[in-house]
């Protein structure tokens, strides 16, 4: 589904190289996790895939179902099925959460040549999905993420994901800031979406999340590269021993 080959990325404005040859291949229906020290480039990888400005790809490629992502506008990537749950969800004063969700859902449907959802149908679906994530009606009326607590923002990201039904979901530290119950809610939300045709890339620092969302593959990223790949046991190893062993092992 997602194929990243030898991806090199630097900052556009500075001579700072962040990704130094990332290789990653995620098959349909698979769940991959990326762990790695602060500043190793995990969020940068997710932003570059989603199409954020400010980065320059100097080498490599990233394809979604064979389509080159890096050439597309962010909205085209979204329409192609890519979704990024932000590490820091953005507040948008003045734009209602409901308006935002509806505009997004219908824009994607339109881009794919599907019919737009009627206001009634849309409302029904949102209410249902919001309920399972314990997002109340009042939160849906408020401007996007404005005044939301850290955990509420993360749940709102998952609501968007549930509404947009992307095929390739990237979750960047969606567990950070969540209390134990919210972690369960969010994980259940993610697990409910797991299917043969949908893949996940879960960026996290903690093994705990991976108890809920069981990964097929775990990668360790350091200094802009994937330095080790393994099974779920790799996350446990990091949890117990930190990164020192792995880093020195790789050299």
């Amino acid at each position: 589904m997602l194929e990243i080959k030898n991806l090199h990325v630097k900052l556009e404005e500075e001579d700072k190289v962040i990704l130094r040859g990332v290789d990653l291949s995620i098959g349909a229906g698979e769940v991959h996790a990326i762990m790695g020290p602060n500043g190793s480039g995990k969020s940068t990888l997710s932003y570059v895939l989603a199409g954020r400005d400010g980065y320059e790809v100097t080498e490599g490629s990233a394809t979604l179902d064979g389509q080159e992502l890096l050439e597309m506008e962010p909205e085209e990537r979204a329409a192609a099925g890519l979704f990024l749950a932000f590490q820091y969800p953005v507040e948008i004063p003045g734009v209602g959460n409901m308006t935002f969700l509806r505009t997004a859902v219908n824009a994607q449907r339109k881009a794919r040549g599907e019919e737009e959802l009627s206001a009634g149908d849309f409302l029904k679906i949102v209410r249902e999905k919001a309920k399972t994530l314990k997002i109340d009606a009042e939160m849906l009326k408020r401007p996007v993420n404005v005044g939301f607590s850290g955990g509420e923002k993360k749940r709102n990201e998952i609501l968007q994901m549930a509404m947009l039904e992307p095929r390739m979901c990237i979750l960047d530290e969606t567990d950070s800031g969540l209390d134990v119950d919210a972690m369960k809610l969010v994980s259940d939300g993610v697990n409910a979406l797991r299917s043969e045709g949908r893949s996940f890339l879960v960026i996290t620092h903690y093994q705990r999340l991976l108890d809920h969302i069981k990964p097929d593959v775990v990668h360790i990223m350091a200094a802009g590269r994937i330095i080790k790949t393994g099974g779920p046991e790799l996350a446990l190893e990091v949890e117990q021993n930190g990164y020192a062993d792995i880093l020195s092992e790789v050299g």
């Binding site: 953005v90 507040e91 881009a111 947009l164």
Partner: peptide
């Protein structure tokens, strides 16, 4: 940043 957030949800620029 807000613009990118919206676009990343599929909203045209």
């Amino acid at each position: 940043t807000a613009l990118f957030y919206l676009q990343s949800r599929g909203v045209p620029r």
